[in-house]
C-alpha cells in the first residue's frame, strides 16, 4: 500500500453546550498521513488548537476499533463517512486526497440533543432497552447451556442482529430521525431465540411505546438506516418488528 500526505480543509460544527446555537468553523490541517485514522486526524488538529490556546473539538470515541459504538461523526452528509459497513474510528485517511474539503457534523435528531460540538446525548437508547430489551432471568436460574438446542441458522441470525453497537447512525441518517432499525435489531435478536419467547409480546409493545415517548420519528421505509449501519443490520428486521408488534397488539390478553 502506497502512503501519502495531504492537506485538507475541515468544516466542523462547534457548539459550546446544548443551549448554544452553534455554527461551522473552518480549519486547515496539514501533512496528514494516509495511514492515520479519521479520529487521529482530529487528534492532530486538537493538539494544534490547544497549543494555539484555542478550544479543542469535543467528540465521542473510546475503543477505536469499531465495536463500542461511541464514535458518531456525520461526515459529508453521511454517518461515519464514505466507507461501507464502517464506524468513524475505522475510517482511514486514505479515503481522502490532497486538497479535499470535509464537512463534519454531530448526529442530528430531537432525541439526541447535542452536549458539545460533535458529542450528543444518546441515553434514549438505554431507556428503550430498559423498556424490555432483555430476557428476565435472574442469576443462578439457568439450566445447562446445551439443554436447549437452537437451530444454527436462527442462532446465527440472532447473532447478526445482536451485533448492533447502539451508535445511532440509523437515526442520524433517517429523514424522520426514526430509531426503528436499532429497536428492531433488539426485538429480532430476542424474538428469534426460544429463550426470548415468553416475553415477546410485552417486549414489542413496551419498547415501541418508549421509542415514541423519546421523540424519535416514524419509519417510512426509506432504507437510509440500513445503508449506513456499520454492522449491516438488515432492514428486514423492521418488517419482523412490525409483525411482532401487530401480533402482540391483536393477541395480548391483558
Amino acid at each position: 500500500m502506497e502512503h501519502y500526505n495531504m492537506n485538507l480543509t475541515l468544516k466542523v460544527w462547534r457548539q459550546k453546550n446544548k443551549d448554544d446555537r452553534g455554527q461551522f468553523e473552518t480549519y486547515q490541517v496539514k501533512n496528514i498521513s494516509s495511514e492515520m485514522s479519521f479520529l487521529e486526524m482530529f487528534d492532530v488538529l486538537n493538539e494544534e488548537l490547544i497549543r494555539e490556546g484555542r478550544d479543542p473539538i469535543t467528540f465521542d470515541h473510546d475503543c477505536r476499533e469499531g465495536i463500542c459504538g461511541a464514535c458518531s461523526m456525520y461526515i459529508d452528509g453521511r454517518p461515519h463517512g464514505p466507507w461501507e459497513a464502517n464506524t468513524t474510528c475505522q475510517l482511514h485517511m486514505r479515503a481522502y486526497k490532497d486538497g479535499d474539503t470535509i464537512v463534519v457534523e454531530p448526529w442530528r435528531a430531537k432525541a439526541f440533543p447535542v452536549i458539545k460540538d460533535l458529542m450528543v446525548d444518546r441515553s434514549a437508547f438505554d431507556r428503550i432497552i430498559q423498556a424490555g430489551g432483555y430476557i428476565s432471568v435472574n442469576t443462578g436460574n439457568a439450566v445447562d447451556a446445551n439443554a436447549m438446542p437452537i437451530e444454527k441458522d436462527k442462532a446465527d441470525l440472532a447473532f447478526a442482529n445482536a451485533a448492533c453497537i447502539g451508535c445511532g447512525a440509523c437515526v442520524a441518517s433517517c429523514k424522520n430521525s426514526s430509531a426503528m432499525l436499532f429497536l428492531s435489531a433488539k426485538v429480532s435478536h430476542l424474538a428469534l431465540l426460544p429463550q426470548g419467547d415468553p416475553e415477546r409480546k410485552d417486549r414489542a409493545l413496551n419498547m415501541v411505546a418508549q421509542l415514541d415517548k423519546e421523540g424519535f420519528g416514524g419509519c417510512t421505509n426509506t432504507g437510509a438506516c440500513e445503508a449506513v449501519c456499520p454492522k449491516e443490520i438488515s432492514i428486514s428486521n423492521i418488517a419482523r418488528l412490525n409483525s411482532e408488534y401487530l401480533r402482540a397488539g391483536l393477541t395480548v390478553d391483558k
Binding site: V137, N141, A142, A145, D156, A162, L193, Q195
Partner: peptide
C-alpha cells in the same frame, strides 16, 4: 449457562 439463558448468541 447464565449467558445462554440471557440470550447471548454463542
Amino acid at each position: 449457562d447464565q449467558c445462554v439463558a440471557q440470550g447471548v448468541p454463542f
